[in-house]
Write a protein that binds this DNA or RNA. Structure first.
Lengths: 228, 228
DNA sequence: CAGGCAAAACTTGTATACAATCTGACCTCA
DNA sequence: TGAGGTCAGATTGTATACAAGTTTTGCCTG
């Protein structure tokens, strides 16, 4: 979170840097963010910091407790389920829509994105790889030209990052199957059905690598949501 | 937006009152909300007002232009489509999930809700009726016990209200079919499939009463999204 | 009279001072 | 010893003063 430049940072910039830190798991769930500590680091007044913190709280990344401060959120098991259920509703259709609109330029961008993910893994920076992986999903919503859904997905990806920090089964053996590669292939071929199915499978794959067993309410399961 | 009490209002309360005003179309798309005007009305400092305005901007109800101020949002045709596409993805599944969990108390509550809607129409208060109609949809997400989706839906219902203010075909002939009644019946019978189908139909019904014809991009249509 | 420039009036953005609340250490007393 | 209470320090919440930017007004010029 280096900040050498004297340029005056806006709330937006601060929010972005904090978001990166959380996505890369440099800031862990439960961590407290004191206002004047943050304002010292970024060289702005608390007014601006508070704007940033409140924006991130709205996205679900932080939780603000009145008179107590801002903390990196710790999603409950229920929230973890809800996040992936919501993603299961939004992302497959979005991938299908994206397939119809994908351009050559998009493919180049996505492939560069995947390359960066692999590089991050090679350099043993799993936090960065995870963040890039999340961005990949947002990129698909962008290609689908669905800004409303993209905005929701941004929040869901953020929360997913927290869920993974808390509930990932085996911290070492990091995922990154070739799921993203397969998705890019489907998009290149404008094969909406394939993209939709691959996205369903990919989400289910991530979901199944989470340790959410304790949670056993009769609630609708994700598998059920993705079955059809 | 009367405010006689001297009780000190929180940003949250102010946001709620402004939200009501917009939902009931007392504040129309494009209207400007000056900070010290609002702070005078509610008797708090601009600091608190700014919190409320920023929160509403995050929900999409207001649009804040830097150094210019906060305005009630005017969703474009594209945004209008996106809002209903997102609702089409989220609400039918949610209605299905709700059907499995609906209790007798929920039914009582929903029926009272519908009664209030009709009363509002009888009293010639279409704005209030519209607001209540939106709340009905949120109530279903609450019954489904899906807080994440409920939160998204809250934003979508808000934006729908703006879309209706801008694009409703015939201002007079107000809707309110018996769609909500039929939904309550399905919920009472724990008939998830019926609830899902009714919700699809209901959304399509609202959508078809909007005048969104100018918008004719090759984008995925809502009808297509609901077809299957 | 139209166009454009300039200054004044107004509105929002940021910093800071002060108030309210929470936290934790220390002390007292059963 | 430990339960409870009180006070000091630290942290967040709110109001306000000032800075920066935008809009309006009105004057001047062609």
């Amino acid at each position: 979170m280096s900040n050498i430049t004297k340029e005056k940072l806006a709330a937006e910039d601060i929010a972005a840097q904090l978001t990166n830190a959380v996505h890369e798991h440099r800031l862990k769930p439960g961590a407290k963010l004191r206002e004047d500590e943050v304002s010292d680091v970024f060289g702005v007044s608390r007014t601006v910091v508070r704007q940033a913190l409140r924006a991130l709280a709205f996205e679900g990344l932080l939780t603000i407790e009145r008179n107590r401060g801002a903390f990196v959120s710790k999603p409950s098991l229920k929230e973890a389920h809800e996040v992936f259920q919501a993603r299961a509703l939004l992302e497959p259709s979005t991938a299908r829509a994206a397939a119809e609109r994908t351009t050559a330029a998009d493919i180049v961008l996505l492939e560069r994105h995947i390359k960066e993910e692999h590089e991050a893994l090679d350099q043993d920076r799993p936090g960065l790889a995870l963040k890039l992986s999340g961005d990949f999903h947002l990129e698909i919503a962008r290609i689908a030209d669905q800004q409303t859904i993209e905005q929701f997905l941004k929040q869901l990806v953020s929360r997913s990052s927290l869920v993974i920090a808390l509930y990932w089964k085996r911290r070492n053996a990091l995922c990154e199957s070739n799921a993203h590669h397969a998705l890019v292939d489907a998009l290149r071929n404008h094969d909406g059905s394939a993209a939709e199915e691959l996205m369903k499978g990919h989400l289910l794959d991530i979901y199944s690598q989470l340790d959410l067993r304790e949670y056993d309410e009769g609630a609708t399961s994700l598998k059920e949501a993705l079955r059809k």
